[in-house]
Amino acid sequence: MTLACPTGRALLARSHVALPVALDFVVVGLNHQTAPVEVRERAAVRAGEEAAVLAHLSRFAREVMLLATCNRTEVYLAGLRGDPRAVFGDAWGADLQEHLYVHRGEAAAAHLYRVAAGLGSLVIGETQIQGQVKRAWQLSRELGLSGTVLNKVAQGALAAGKRVRTETALADRVVSVSSVAVELAQAALGGLTGRTALILGAGETAELTLTHLRAAGVDDVIVVNRTAERARALAERLGGRACAAELLHEALPAADVVIASSAAPHYVLHPQGVAAALEGRLGRPMFLIDISVPRILDPDIGRVPGAFLYNLDDLTAIVSRNLASRRAALPHAEAIVREGVSDLARWNLTREAQRALRAGRELAAASD
């Protein structure tokens, strides 16, 4: 019996049977829901290190984006070669494995859509994450690590995030980790009117913190930063006074509340320094809130009599209370995310169908 060689038309038909439709996209990472702050800080990425980390990760995938914030470190990959957990472990250590989550395909895209919309944040609906996602994607593009898939997913995530903020009640009250930290300080001190606050840091989060402190009635804000020029610029712009980093301990006794939001590579304040500052406060307590990751306030400060130390994980109670007023908006926000992911799935299906059609035509041409 002679077996007939399949024609180009038959090969084309077969290509449709084996049509790949899964979105080639993966996310692996950890966040405040899967890892406490002492674990998250081990996977933190310091300012200026992002490009080097991306270069390392690019050995394992065609497209790579790194999203590192105070509450998450996530790697988004297209064209991945190997196991995503192993890729993360190669960059930050295998001992973090139990805290990692992995999502693939449309589930990975939905994760980024929710993140960009603020639905995966410690403070639900916070707005700072939108800019962080945008900057993460832009850096990948600048380094040539964002291609067809990552560009499409990132653009869709940013569009979904914008829709959630403009179309739902989640945008009724702008909130952030900074605003929750200030709310915690208000509760601890029974109000901030007439108080003195000291901010460690002069970046975006520090600027937000200063804005919220002023709105809460703080009269005197001291800005301390390693770069004196940045501290001075922030203080002059929003109303405050700058302090050189080497004079921190001289300024500390005046502070009723200290909020740390810097990316220093080590602890900048230790128990001994806080104890000395409290001696000059004549029995008045000091409240310290560390919203940095890695933390820059030595955790042992909490053992100093008169010092009350909080970190990001301690903000949970306030976040839960604020979330109660936002729950009604969550179904609409989730619906926007689902709609965006459905659009992405249709785009991917069309793209894969076109790719299979081209492959079938090439096979048909080769067999004629």
Results as ranks from 00 to 15, higher is better:
307 A>S: 07
240 G>L: 05
141 R>S: 07
130 Q>D: 07
75 V>G: 01
305 P>I: 02
282 L>Q: 15
9 R>E: 15
16 H>T: 03
242 A>T: 00
74 E>R: 15
317 A>H: 13
38 E>L: 13
5 C>D: 08
195 R>K: 12
330 L>G: 01
163 R>N: 03
85 R>S: 01
177 V>D: 04
360 G>C: 05
320 S>A: 11
283 G>W: 06
95 D>I: 13
341 V>Q: 03
292 S>R: 07
108 A>H: 10
94 A>T: 00
283 G>K: 09
16 H>D: 04
136 A>M: 01
58 S>L: 14
20 P>Y: 14
240 G>R: 02
195 R>Q: 08
324 A>E: 15
25 F>Q: 14
159 A>C: 11
76 Y>T: 02
10 A>R: 02
327 R>E: 15
324 A>D: 10
157 A>T: 00
144 G>W: 04
20 P>R: 14
367 S>Q: 14
310 Y>L: 09
265 P>S: 08
82 G>C: 06
285 P>S: 12
22 A>E: 15
236 E>L: 13
232 R>E: 12
304 V>G: 00
30 L>W: 12
363 L>W: 06
223 V>Y: 10
75 V>R: 09
322 N>K: 10
81 R>A: 09
300 D>L: 15
345 A>K: 14
193 T>S: 13
78 A>F: 07
89 G>S: 05
8 G>R: 05
228 A>G: 05
105 G>H: 11
